[in-house]
Nucleic acid binder design. Structure first.
Lengths: 328, 328
DNA sequence: CAATTAATGGCAACCGGTTGCCACCCGGTT
DNA sequence: AACCGGGTGGCAACCGGTTGCCATTAATTG
């Protein structure tokens, strides 16, 4: 079932078979149809390796996530997968285990076996990213680096909405519950929070950093309570859900005593207890857009892209974890 | 940065470079070290495609899931990913979108670009699976097919535990909320359920089939209530969580009026409302084991495997969605 | 009718490694 | 001195396609 078998069977040269299948207009109609029929009959599937070797294109894209079990990535993976399949490409999933070193190493390793990579939540320093982007098509998600294409979810804007929401409910002491320091989005959200607070003459407290797992939520919840804030905006939903659990354990009423706002609207945010008020992010769309940008980039290698970065809007979804500030 | 560049730089033949890197003992120590140093310096990474082409091994394994957003797979993906990385292999993730046809098509397409595949929740008929397994190393998850290696989570046993639990709480009318008919696990669970019920002289009701999404939960909840059962065992947690939501909407008290038991213990099962009593499955372990079996198979191609199928135990995790049967 | 051009298909090099086979060099034997 | 065998490294074929180039043939054109 190689190109040669088909060539032998149809009595033409291998090169003709190759053309009949990949450049149909380059070969005579009757010859082509004979070859295609034979290929179908023999159930021929071209060897990707061989194609990649000579053409230099692997039709494969790597998606690097920092933790494959983080529900945030589910949507991203899905969106990317959909768009890739539509284009006939394959998805190589890589879990960097939240380590910049491992990320760099793996990136280096797959460098030559993929056409491009999508970096979701890269932990790499800007400098390193630039270097990588220069030698390999890259699209980042939620990370802005000069001269690197990216799709970023506008959570800073969402954070502002969240602050407005909380302030309008009478909250004055609001804290930001920070995620990993190496996360670009984390800093962006914190800045947005301070800006929004300042607009009302308020200053935001900040606790953390915390890991992004539900278990970190316990520590975070205690730290949050300790600030005396009546509301907390968290780096992401995973952390927020962990906080809700801990608060329930400690018998703290949400939103009666304290309001909690998450970020991303991941799976589970709508059915945790109480359902989480959060910034709904178009995660799946982000995955699709990232792939589109990458594929577009691949087709116009060398050209300067029209849009370097796409900003996706978020909106606040109000559920039951936020409510009026408690009377003092 | 090809083998030839290194050859030129060190003044040896390309074949020697190849050997120095892949069969170190086949070349003299000083030559080898010189070559290795040069390789390191030039930051050489072998071209996977080229290696695959000549060696026939791609060091890549495909994982087929029926729906990448189903939290059940997160753990599986994670486990597989971990074990694969440890072995230096890459993971190709494929979403079959719950279609047997697409599954077959994609399987066929990647056939030659992976060393083997792991089929999580295959929708393919047994016959087709046998054919595929004959021409490609395959390990299935939660699916038992003669002559195909598999790792199956012993949820039937778990279902029996669940029935015992419910019966001991006084339930007599228990219904099974079925998942997709094409799911092998679905039938296995239903059989286990009937057996367990029969042991107590009871017969189980059955509703469904339902899709495995939370939204299907609404329909399922109504159907479940309609049977008059005081408890329901569901095909999986996703469905169970959907049911809980719908029941809450309808003002039905869980577990006061009806108990619900899920299956798998996915992300979210512990923090939904009420927290779900469910069969805790070692999902991540299943992923790891599946990969181990596959890699083991690859190393001993042609040999008859020692164990064709590995059965992983489950246990019942009791939370708040199950309780005593209501008095009539 | 000769000349130019377009369509078609074969040849062979190439992508970047891997590997069987052989030649060569060396020290050790007899 | 002739012989032997192990250690090394080069040659070249091969994996399965892709593609530039050229020869052949047919069709178009002045």
């Amino acid at each position: 079932m190689t190109i040669n078998d088909i060539a032998a069977l149809t009595g033409v040269a291998a090169s003709t078979v190759s053309r009949a299948l990949s450049r149909p207009d380059r070969v005579n109609r009757v010859t082509r149809e004979r070859i295609q029929a034979a290929a179908r009959e023999l159930n021929y599937v071209p060897n990707t390796q061989a194609q990649a070797l000579s053409s230099g294109r692997t039709e494969t894209v790597a998606l690097l996530v920092s933790d494959a079990t983080n529900p945030f990535y589910f949507g991203l993976i899905r969106g990317a997968q959909q768009q890739l399949r539509a284009a006939g490409h394959a998805l190589l999933l890589i879990d960097t285990e939240d380590s910049a070193e491992l990320e760099n190493h793996l990136l280096h390793k797959v460098r030559r076996s993929v056409d491009g990579v999508i970096l979701a939540a890269s932990r790499l320093p800007e400098q390193t990213l630039s270097v990588i982007a220069a030698e390999l098509p890259v699209v980042t998600v939620n990370r802005n680096v000069p001269r690197v294409r990216s799709v970023v979810i506008d959570s800073p804007d969402g954070v502002m909405q969240a602050v407005e929401h909380l302030v309008s409910l009478g909250h004055r002491a609001i804290a930001y519950v920070a995620g990993p320091p190496s996360s670009w989005a984390n800093e962006a959200r914190w800045r947005a929070m301070r800006t929004a607070m300042a607009r009302h003459g308020l200053t935001a407290a900040r606790v953390g950093p915390f890991g992004v797992s539900r278990s970190s939520g316990s520590v975070a919840a205690d730290a949050l309570l300790n600030t005396g804030a009546t509301a907390g905006v968290t780096f992401n939903d995973l952390l927020a859900i962990g906080i809700l659990q801990r608060l329930a354990e400690r018998g703290v009423d949400v939103p009666g005593e304290i309001s909690v706002v998450g970020c991303d609207d991941i799976f589970g945010a709508d059915f945790c207890s109480p359902p989480l008020t959060t910034l709904t992010a178009p995660i799946e769309q982000a995955g699709r857009v990232a792939v589109s940008m990458l594929l577009d980039h691949l087709e116009h290698l060398g050209e300067t892209p029209s849009r370097q970065t796409v900003l996706l809007p978020t909106h606040l979804t109000i559920r039951q974890s936020s409510g009026p500030a408690p009377r003092r």
